[in-house]
Amino acid sequence: MKPTTRKRLFRGALYAIFIIAVVVVAVLADWEAIQSNFFDLDVAAEAFPGIITTAAKNTVVYTAIAFVGGMIGGLILALMKLSPVGPYRWLATAYIELFRGLPALLVIFGFAFAVPIAFQWRPPGGSAGAGLIALIVVAAAYIAETIRAGIEAVPKGQVEAARSLGMRPSWTLVSVVLPQAFRIITPPLTNELVILIKDTSLLFIAGMALGDRELTTFARDSVSSQANATPLVLAALMYLVITLPLTQLVAKLERHNKRGR
């Protein structure tokens, strides 16, 4: 057999397997059950407008708060980690390793339940607020490492040029290093943002007031009250509407960076 013939046969076999698999799934699947359990229009209608005005809105708001908080915390931690002062470096390293090593769910649980009981402290914003603080605490650890990598990727000559012009270290950082570092890390930072969007779903463990519910909590409550999975599908679509443009953006930025500026 000629190599080209063999290649063509192999390609044909792959297509055949795919078509058989599709046919088998189509024949075996209980389409009625799928339709009535996952795509029930009446149940879907029930979910509106709350799934948008409350749930999707809260998901976006929580993500924004956690991201901004995580960026501020991450920047401080990154600068501490690059500090010439030993104790700052050690503290930042310990923090980053700790919170990257723990499941986010456990941290949320701690802030929502353990911390308030232990210290007789009511977090602002109730359970949602406590959960958000936990998300910020965890996000800061990841973002810190990203920012540190970005700062270290800025060529040493940039700092030398700024310092040789008489610019103070603080101005050098703000006007020369950070703008270049953030340009370098825009793709990974956008990835952190996408991960954060999905991680807001973990807030359900905190147990939230009705108006504080985000997409996953909202969908789960609807699923149990309606005994139907359609709200879950709606929530999934909402997540994709938010995350897909961002992941596309990351892909585009990465192609752009590869080509060089």
């Binding site: 940039q158 030398e160 008489g166 703008p179």
Partner: peptide, 16 residues
């Protein structure tokens, strides 16, 4: 340093 101009082999202009 503001009184000492420095020019580097690699230029080191600020690319942004």
């Amino acid at each position: 340093r503001t009184r000492i101009g420095m020019v580097f082999q690699q230029f080191n202009l600020f690319p942004h």
